[in-house]
Amino acid sequence: MSDTSRIYLQPTPIRIWHWLNAFGIVTLGLTGIQIRFPDYVNIFAGYKTAILLHNVAGVVVAASFALWFFYYSFVARNMLKLYVPSKDEVQKGLLRQAKFYLLTYFLGRPNPHHPTPQNKFNPMQKSAYLAIMFLLMPLLGLSGILLINIEPMRNLILMIGGLKILMAIHYLLACCLCAFLFTHVYLATLGRTAFAYIKPMWTGWEENESEQHETLDLTAPRPN
């Protein structure tokens, strides 16, 4: 195993952001179900626990969103390059990637996209993450912040149309995120092995697909 066969794909702040998000969003989803359907679901002992946990997890996810935002826009400074698909990607890349997912994958062909630190996402990922990170997550987070502070932000809530409308926005956006989550987790297992895509998100290092695999030493010190 040589260092050159691996690429350092996910820097530390991004890995922290991702796993805080993962843990936080799952917690938010589970507590959210109990908050909306307390007469059917009682996962966490007591309604108040669910509410407080939902609030805390919401704040953690919002903070980690801010970490993501600041890292990409001020430290790595490649946010737009990573998340905004180019004209070429929209015109050809999307189709090529869709073809892979829907056809060539089943025939056993390799993924046409090879991630690099400057171009991590395939065109479909780019479009999906663009919508999720720049539209869905901010709106979900903002509606959540408003819902935590109903009384102090009453005027703002009324401008949106009222508490019930805010509630509906928050709920439907959360359903969208939940729907994305299933797809996201499933597609993450589409690598050479089920964990081939998940491992880099945890360790930061992605193995080159043409190399021999399963020899990664997780505990080895590595630069950041």
Binding site: L20, F23, G24, T27, F44, A45, G46, K48, T49, L52, L53, V56, A57, V60
Partner: peptide, 14 residues
Amino acid sequence: DGSQLAIYIFLGMC
């Protein structure tokens, strides 16, 4: 009350 335990567990995991 007891709800703080759940929150500490969550934050601990984070």
